[in-house]
């Protein structure tokens, strides 16, 4: 059966250690000042009632991706298994996909002049391993797998938890599922007053 990769993040477990950011940079040789996954941090309340909230954001690998619609040279591709990738030999670096992505999850590589993005660590998946962020998370907040496989971790995660996605109203059908999402961080600018 066709695979459909998705990622799940249990925000009740996330401790905001930024490990996923660093590991992603090391694994994919991401240039300075840009990130493929990062943790938004927010603060709620006033002393003595204070809580920090975290939200790791990464490419949602949408079912209906805007970046693929607008790419003028078909360098952005939605693969059969659900992963959205950029063909590094075809991309002309026009940055239209960056402008159109509602999640702002793409970056331009200043050395190569092309646009790059999270590809769920394709080289690792092909060797039956997990993406670097998932494998390295010390709190085991990340869940990765094939949604079409009924025995997979991600399928259980999606069924067992109350899940939500970011910017559901765009109609892009994002494939990164969050459990325990705090809406104040999911908001565009982060925090409503």
């Amino acid at each position: 059966m066709k695979k459909r990769y998705a990622i799940g993040i249990d925000l009740n477990k996330c401790i905001g250690c930024h490990t996923c950011e660093i590991v992603c940079k090391l694994e994919n040789k991401v240039p300075i000042s840009v990130w493929r996954i990062w943790i938004k941090e927010g603060l709620k309340g006033k002393y003595p009632l204070v809580r920090k909230v975290f939200l790791p954001v990464l490419c949602n690998h949408c079912e209906n991706p805007t970046c693929v619609t607008v790419c003028p040279v078909k360098a952005s591709i939605k693969r059969e298994d659900g992963i959205v990738i950029v063909d590094p030999h075809r991309c002309i670096g026009c940055r239209y996909c960056m402008a159109a992505c509602p999640y702002g999850m793409r970056h331009v590589n200043p050395l190569l002049g092309i646009v790059q993005k999270c590809d769920f660590c394709l080289h690792r998946i092909e060797n039956n391993s997990k993406p670097a962020c998932v494998a390295s998370c010390p709190a085991k907040a990340f869940v990765f797998g094939d949604l079409n496989d009924k025995n997979s971790e991600i399928y259980k995660f999606v069924i067992e938890n109350n899940i939500s996605v970011l910017k559901e109203d765009t109609g892009n059908l994002p494939q990164a599922f969050y459990a325990g999402l705090d809406f104040t961080l999911a908001d565009k600018k982060g925090m409503p007053e």
Binding site: W38, I39, G42, L43, K44, G45, K189, P192
Partner: peptide
């Protein structure tokens, strides 16, 4: 609500 954003990555 008392909320503030303390870390985000610039676009």
């Amino acid at each position: 609500m008392d909320t503030m954003l303390i870390y985000n990555v610039p676009m």
